[in-house]
């Protein structure tokens, strides 16, 4: 194993901001953030729909604020073909709803609450993610 591209300071800084967002939402609005839950509820449930949609809209303002106000470069690179994006997208949507959480809902909000369910979910999706990358590297 070689360690490459490691950016501990920006990772920790971004993480702290995510923690601040989670805790403000909890103290003020009474809910623990889970983005798969917020997004799927915005689609399928009338309850708190406006709040959920505004949160998602806020997310998309993040990159624009970074680019135009903080003058930070925002780059992403996705190399998958459309069929792979389709399979990946459906798996992520279906899987996060069956297990009621994703990286934010289980990995951050759930672990903060010391939820055993979330700890098991996080270990499971990380392990399967690592195995998937291992397999795609071989293929």
């Amino acid at each position: 194993m070689n360690i490459i591209n490691f950016t501990p300071i920006s990772a920790l800084t971004g993480g702290l901001l995510i923690g601040v967002s989670v805790i403000l939402f909890f103290i003020l609005n009474g809910r623990m953030i889970g983005i798969s839950g917020i997004a799927s509820n915005a689609l399928t449930s009338k309850d708190k729909r406006i709040e959920n949609l505004l949160f998602l809209f806020g997310l998309t303002l993040g990159p624009l604020i970074c680019r135009f106000l903080l003058d930070q470069e925002v780059k992403i690179s996705i190399s998958n073909s459309l069929p792979l994006l389709t399979i990946g997208g459906v798996l992520v949507g279906l899987g996060t709803r069956l297990s009621s959480g994703c990286t934010s809902g289980h990995g951050i909000s759930g672990i903060s609450r010391f939820s055993l369910r979330s700890i098991i979910a996080t270990i499971t999706f990380m392990t399967v993610g690592i195995i998937t990358v291992l397999i795609t590297n071989i293929l």
């Binding site: 971004g14 959920n52 990159p63 604020i65």
Partner: peptide, 22 residues
């Protein structure tokens, strides 16, 4: 609160570069 928390979370994802699948 929802929109502000969304913005802070989104900026966190950009600064940490977790927005980039690579």
């Amino acid at each position: 609160v929802s929109i502000i928390c969304g913005i802070i979370f989104g900026i966190g994802l950009v600064i940490s570069e977790m927005i980039n699948p690579e």
